[in-house]
Simulated assay, not measured.
Amino acid sequence: MYRLEHVSKVYQETTALQDISFSVEKGEIVGIVGKSGSGKSTLLRLLNLLETPSKGQLFLANKEINKLSKKAIQQQKQKIGMVFQQYNLLNNLTVKENVALPLKLMGKKDEANVMELLSFVGMNHKQDSYPAQLSGGEKQRVALARALTRNPDVLLCDEATSSLDEENTDDVIRLLQRIHEEFPVTIFFVSHELDTVKKLCERVLVMEDSRLLGVVDNQPTYLSKSDTPYLEKVKRRLAE
């Protein structure tokens, strides 16, 4: 799926990434962790094809990105879905219209697919609501549905749970686990929340000072929906 060989990214005199090498197979869930300024965001921009390497080679689906035409790169971008920390929903559009937006920008329309995705993320009952009427967890569910609209090969999650409380974070993790089961998608999950990464990711790329320190294998935990009342959850956590 992705292969990076000795990739570096330099902005003027600042080295944002230095000699990064790793590969990711189709269908993996990979975490990217590191302190602020470690290079996570730059790496994500390379994976999203918003940037190209200053040095080294980046391959996506066995195609070297630096050798592709602008049209070919745009075609590859359409196979990549993005989910952001701040949701990036358009406030003047309804939930349904936000999810349909990627198709609209391509000059396409598929209302059945939009409604199916809204049902999948549990937001079909809010299809006519606007983002201002939604909670943070609901907004992220809509953002996930929108990211899936074009049936992507890759889903990039940039701090997708950082603005959410613990309950909603677990809901999003459960939804990402369902997405991984039911869609043929490779997931990159960028986060500074190690507990969240531990629950979701099979491998974790550890970044520091623009370098890749190493890759850590992990056994994720499949989260089932808990029926424990919220008060009891709080009591248990405080007693730990």
Score class of each variant (00 low, 15 high):
193 E>G: 04
176 L>Y: 01
112 A>P: 00
20 I>V: 15
155 L>N: 11
162 S>A: 15
133 Q>V: 09
224 S>W: 00
200 L>R: 12
66 N>S: 15
164 L>R: 10
51 E>R: 08
184 P>T: 05
120 F>Q: 02
93 L>M: 14
201 C>F: 08
75 Q>D: 13
236 R>K: 15
74 Q>E: 12
240 E>R: 14
223 L>A: 09
201 C>Q: 03
107 G>A: 10
19 D>C: 09
216 V>H: 07
5 E>S: 14
78 Q>P: 00
210 S>G: 12
154 V>H: 00
34 G>Q: 05
194 L>I: 15
17 L>K: 10
38 S>R: 06
199 K>Y: 04
141 R>Q: 04
177 Q>T: 03
14 T>L: 13
74 Q>Y: 03
37 G>Y: 03
200 L>V: 14
91 N>T: 12
179 I>H: 06
169 T>R: 11
12 Q>A: 14
156 L>C: 12
83 V>T: 09
146 R>I: 05
29 I>N: 02
130 Y>I: 07
113 N>V: 00
193 E>W: 05
170 D>F: 09
106 M>V: 05
179 I>L: 09
51 E>A: 11
218 N>T: 09
109 K>M: 01
35 K>W: 00
114 V>D: 01
168 N>W: 03
96 K>P: 00
238 L>D: 03
95 V>H: 00
103 L>R: 07
146 R>P: 03
115 M>K: 07
155 L>K: 13
147 A>D: 05
112 A>D: 04
132 A>K: 08
190 V>W: 03
209 D>A: 15
121 V>Y: 01
59 F>K: 09
237 R>K: 15
140 Q>T: 04
123 M>R: 06
9 K>P: 03
199 K>I: 10
55 K>Y: 12
173 I>P: 04
55 K>I: 05
164 L>A: 07
188 F>P: 08
